[in-house]
Design a binder for these strands. Structure first.
Lengths: 167, 167
DNA sequence: TTGGAAAGTCAACAACGCTGACATAAACTT
DNA sequence: AAGTTTATGTCAGCGTTGTTGACTTTCCAA
């Protein structure tokens, strides 16, 4: 709340309201920059950010179900369905009936889906790569540490659970 | 592109595509968490994220003009106007004719505008504070460094230009 | 066989981006 | 003084992406 110094980390002066406000603002500007490059590509094709997110998470977990995707993305099925319907119609995503449970649909990227996902994520990675290089390895470790600490427990599990090795 | 090791920072293995993908994903999840708390308050009041942004930047630069706000937020005047109109009608923002240039409007937060902005930003700061404390001062420095490196030059100037002291 | 979960669809709505067109006042230029 | 530019505001309309609610179909499991 206020900067009463004297005790441990509190005295390191990076928890003042003003410092925290700057942190928020940095998040705002950085996130805008972070989405800007893929947004340009998406616009050419008449897609939006939601399409990118779907492509990203289907690539990350091939064969994932709609329900699983819903819980990761945190949107309603109606909202996701609109996006998926279009991606399937456009031949970027394939939806196949589940093996064990035939109510489920397993989602995969098609070749052209993979190609678009690669194009989008490469645009995004290019910016990340430049930023990481500029900031250096220690800064990157700190960056990741703060981002993870910022997530809710549930999100953190989804984030860390998506792959094997950590960061 | 690929992890051909051997030269300088490249060999530190934090620039592989997979590492960069994880960075992107961390940004996605963290940003969702970052906006979640104020979003809940805004929803109660029938406002959206755009209202929060306007309140934030008017508080940051009291007396700012509409044009200045437009260039910071990076939206069209029609879009901003819709938000400002509501905030002014609701008595959260005051708009006064400029002194030097009477075409301009100087924007300020009213008392209730200040109160809401405080409530929103405090909710956001609370999460930042917790994350910062968990991650520690070095991580915070790295976090800020990467976020700044991620911005476009123009954004970085707006970010750093808004106040006196840096980070 | 029946209950309920999973998936999909339709309708309607809201927030918030966008474009284009137009109005007004003030300031600047010629 | 007349014309142009700038700052702002507003109207109309559109698209993406979120929401709720209602409903159907499919199909697993008790």
């Amino acid at each position: 709340m206020n900067d009463r110094n004297g005790s441990g980390e509190e005295s390191l002066l990076f928890l003042t309201d003003e410092q925290l406000r700057m942190g928020s603002e940095a998040m705002f500007f950085a996130y805008r920059a972070f989405t800007a490059d893929p947004d340009r590509i998406l616009e050419e094709l008449g897609y939006g950010r939601a399409h990118h997110r779907a492509l990203h998470f289907i690539r990350r977990s091939p064969g994932t179900t709609v329900n699983n995707l819903l819980s990761i993305l945190g949107v309603t099925k109606q909202s996701l369905n609109r996006v998926l319907r279009r991606l399937i119609a456009d031949g970027l995503v394939s939806s196949s009936v589940g093996h064990r449970d035939r109510r489920e649909r397993n989602l995969h990227l098609t070749e052209s889906g993979l190609a678009l996902e690669r194009r989008l994520s490469e645009a995004q990675r290019k910016r990340m790569r430049t930023a990481y290089r500029q900031a250096g390895p220690e800064a990157v470790a700190g960056f990741r540490k703060v981002l993870e600490a910022m997530m809710d427990e549930q999100m953190r599990r989804q984030f860390l659970g998506g792959r094997e090795g950590g960061g």
